[in-house]
Amino acid sequence: MTELIASVTRFWQRIPKAVLFGAAILIQCVLLVLMVADRMQILRDGREVTLQTQPVDPRDLLRGDYVVLRYDISQLPAGRLTGKPSGTRNPLVFVKLAPGANGLYEAVSVHAEPIAVTAPEILIRGRVLYSCGSTSPIFCDKLTIKYGLESYFVPEGEGRTLEQARNQQKLRVVAAVLPSGRAAVKRLLLDGEPVYEEPWY
């Protein structure tokens, strides 16, 4: 064992340092690129879903150029999940969405596991923020869910307009949703008109 470690160490020391440092940087760059590529896949392959935003507490300050977004589907009754063990404090859930008459998607039901859906219904994946239970976590009767669509960074100075539109419920978000339920913000609509379009990269 010691000889093996010594021989590996000798081999390692023969490799030029530039190669080793370069490989380290390459791996880190690849990981960052993978983050972007993962999101690009959602925007490219996901189905478009238009969601109505909800007003957020007006005392929340605009955090620089970062708008807080909340949706009609952010708080939902747990339905059949009420009281059931959730396994973790912040469990993943799958919300079945269906388009309404106005083209906006609304929540139909909440599930702990992915279920089969038929178009135009779609399943979106979210994470429950709070759980109930004193000894082990269970689903509360009302679930607050985050879908990864709750923040949007805009150029400085432009957030205030969006915030006001959000609080007047004039702001809508078009999200791209994959069959797995993962979602990303694709477009912001103000009074039905696109104001921000997310490029792939």
């Binding site: 960052l32 983050m35 972007v36 999101r39 970062y66 985050k146 879908y147 990864g148 669509l149 709750e150 923040s151 949007y152 960074f153 990303a184 913000v185 997310e198």
Partner: peptide, 9 residues
């Protein structure tokens, strides 16, 4: 990158 590309938190 998470901030720039609005990735889920």
């Amino acid at each position: 990158v998470g901030q720039m590309y609005h990735l889920g938190d």
